[in-house]
């Protein structure tokens, strides 16, 4: 099963098990531009699966209100690049709904799904990975799966989470990633990372589509006799500090990689935390391998992205420090 089908399955399960669950967004009724909501309208009806007018702030605000009345709102923002008109609703409203009311009110039933990341030809506005804007916002959970099995389990956990979740789907994986996805209803706990491969020399941390790149980099390192421990964070807010610190205590070296620009990216947060937690264990400066601090340039995507070779170089650098 590929990733978009796994997302579809996750939403189907959520809607089957929760009569208040609704799915909505731009072009959702006919199945969505990435086919994630295919068949849902036929199964659950036009009252529960519907097109909204083209208005992200409306989609987010509508979802918050629906959730605040106890419902489960699964909102789609067509591209993460277009989430910014909804920024105010998400950052100032969804994130603070519980806190500002002294826990009288909350909008935990809200999940905002949105495709993110580079695909080879997206240019400025079909490539961005804006996770760090949201991890900088207390009150929002931020999740990014690396493949179909995780996508279904993390999505179900997000939809059922008592807090609002920004669920970012690496669109490069929609069709490319294929795995055996269990039919049953299952959740993968938010806030927990996973060691994808055990290693002893260097800890390598990533999330979402970047893990495919990091696996290649770890393979290259392996061929050069370097043993990498690869960690998938899965949830960025709250992130699994423990799994990374434990690994770095062992390896003494850390490489963190994401597609979003370097400056102010989530790698900076991880790097800083690890420097605080593991100062005496560190044998080399933490390396960040990230997108450049430019808008996403169509024609230079190959040069812009933190590919396997750039990560391999960073791994060698911490080894040779």
């Amino acid at each position: 099963m590929n990733l978009f089908t796994a997302i579809n399955e996750g939403m189907r399960t959520a809607m089957q098990t929760d009569p208040t669950a609704i799915t909505f967004g731009e072009d959702v009724a006919f199945g969505g531009v990435f086919r994630c909501s295919v068949g849902l309208r036929e199964e659950f009806g036009a009252d529960r699966v519907f097109n909204t007018p083209l208005c992200e702030q409306g989609i987010a605000g509508f979802g918050i209100g629906y959730a605040a009345m106890g419902g489960t709102a699964i909102a789609e923002i067509q591209f993460a690049d277009y989430i910014f008109p909804a920024f105010d609703q998400l950052v100032n409203e969804a994130a603070k709904f519980r806190y500002r009311s002294g826990n009288q009110w909350n909008c935990g039933g809200l999940t905002v799904r949105t495709p993110c990341g580079a695909v080879g030809h997206g240019g400025h506005y079909h490539s961005q990975s804006p996770e760090a804007y949201f991890t900088h916002t207390p009150g929002l959970k931020v999740v990014m799966p690396r493949g179909p099995v995780d996508a279904k389990g993390l999505l179900l956990a997000s939809i059922r989470s008592p807090d609002p979740v920004i669920f970012m789907e690496p669109k490069v994986l929609y069709r490319a990633a294929v795995e055996d996805v269990p039919d049953e209803d299952y959740e993968i706990e938010l806030g927990k990372g996973e060691i994808m491969r055990q290693g002893t020399d260097v800890t390598v941390v990533g999330w979402g589509g970047q893990l495919r790149v990091l696996e290649k980099a770890c393979d290259l390192a392996e061929q050069n006799g370097i043993s990498c421990e690869l960690i998938d964070l899965k949830t960025l807010a709250p992130w699994d500090v423990e799994i990374v610190t434990e690994s770095v205590m062992k390896t003494g070296k850390l490489v963190v990689s994401h597609e979003a620009p370097l400056t102010g990216g989530f790698a900076a947060e991880i790097s800083s935390t690890i420097q605080e937690e593991c100062f005496l264990s560190l044998e080399a400066p933490v390396q960040r391998v990230c997108g450049a601090d430019t808008p996403f340039p169509l024609v230079f995507e190959k040069y812009y992205v933190p590919d396997d070779l750039k990560n391999f170089e960073a791994i060698k650098k911490v080894m040779n420090y």
Partner: peptide
């Protein structure tokens, strides 16, 4: 608007 007919728009 892509697949969305104006009937769903306003």
């Amino acid at each position: 608007a892509i697949s969305t007919p104006v009937a769903d728009q306003y």
